[in-house]
């Protein structure tokens, strides 16, 4: 199972991010990683949380437009060249990254990269063939 990411549509209005964080807080949902894409008119908040279904439900109840997408999680050593070793694989395979973000699992030891590809299964095969450590969804959600 892949990592299931939640994406939320946001108008650029003051306080909207706090509305989301508050909704998650009162529902006792923990955020593993997040990334915010912003344009002049709107934003898209992407989250990986410990309980995707619950988060999706409570956010919808609050009137947000919510979608889920699978992303690929790859573990890297938290040291210089960690990201590069993976992106060289991406480049060699001519994979197109829609977007990516990262967080550290334990500082100085491991970091986790989250990738959004159009062809997730194809990318996963290439990563595995390159002996990269692709993480199971369960593992990331329950960190």
């Amino acid at each position: 199972m892949h990592v299931r990411q939640i994406a939320i549509f946001l108008e650029n209005n003051p306080g909207r991010l706090a509305d989301i964080s508050h909704t998650l807080a009162v529902s006792n949902i923990n955020i593993r990683a997040l990334s915010l894409a912003d344009t002049a008119d709107f934003g898209i908040l992407r989250l990986v949380v410990n309980d995707t279904d619950k988060a999706q439900k409570v956010l919808k109840e609050q009137g947000f437009t919510v979608g889920t997408t699978d992303v690929l999680a790859v573990e890297v050593p938290d040291k210089p060249g960690g990201l590069d070793s993976i992106l060289q694989v991406v480049r060699t395979a001519a994979l197109n990254v829609e977007y990516m973000y990262a967080f550290t699992k334990k500082s100085g030891e491991t970091g986790i990269l989250l990738f959004r590809f159009d062809d997730l299964a194809g990318a996963e095969q290439i990563f595995r063939a390159a002996k990269l450590k692709v993480l199971d969804g369960e593992e990331v959600h329950n960190l």
Binding site: Q5, A7, F9, A37, T39, F42, I44, R46, T65, V66, G67, T69, E98, Y99, R116
Partner: peptide, 15 residues
Amino acid sequence: EVSEKIFSDEVKSLE
């Protein structure tokens, strides 16, 4: 209004 049907996690599709 952005409904779930047209929403995407990618900026480019909304644009």
